[in-house]
């Protein structure tokens, strides 16, 4: 067992774990943060997306011990963040979710897309979202939500 400390949503989390424990399991089972979902556990679906030092990451493809001294943010940690509130509002209004399984990953991906692309169009959003699977919506609502959020953000700036 190894004792590791990482910062999760601004709080220090220290746990004694096996080296083979993924960041996803660490978040869900040690920190009780079940907003991070596991779909495929091999990098294909994007449901487990979190950020590590601000960069989107697959928490199923990351060892918790490799994140020692890093800052991890999960969807729970985005509460009250104005950028995320705006993205959430558009997901709500544009029907960007049904069952919600893919949504935590979609939201974090949406924020990253909008940070890298100003007011992106449909083609850019679709390319950037190709690593996120949704089995409910058919993507139309999700793409539209991100497009509207991008348009509103660029109007503001």
């Amino acid at each position: 067992m190894i004792t590791v400390t990482l910062t999760v949503n601004g709080q220090e989390e220290t746990h004694s774990i096996e080296a083979r424990e993924t960041l996803a399991d660490f978040l869900r089972e040690r920190c009780n943060l079940t907003g991070t979902h596991l779909g495929c556990e091999h990098g294909a679906c994007g449901a487990c997306t979190v950020t590590i030092n601000g960069l989107p990451a697959r928490s199923c493809l990351t060892l918790a011990v490799m994140c020692e001294d890093r800052a991890v943010q999960t969807v729970e940690g985005t509460r009250g963040d104005p950028e995320m509130d705006l993205i959430r509002k558009h997901f709500h209004e544009a029907h960007g979710l049904q069952c919600g399984y893919c949504t935590p990953g979609m939201l974090l991906a949406a924020r990253d897309i909008l940070r890298r692309h100003k007011a992106p169009g449909e083609a850019t959003i679709r390319k950037e979202l190709s690593g996120h699977l949704c089995r409910c919506t058919g993507y139309v609502g999700i793409v539209e939500a991100i497009r509207r959020a991008g348009a509103e953000l660029s109007d503001k700036s």
Binding site: G43, G46, L55, P56, L61, A109, D112, S130, G131
Partner: peptide, 8 residues
């Protein structure tokens, strides 16, 4: 791959 994979 995808951005989250490309980041690492």
């Amino acid at each position: 791959s995808y951005r989250a994979v490309r980041n690492f």
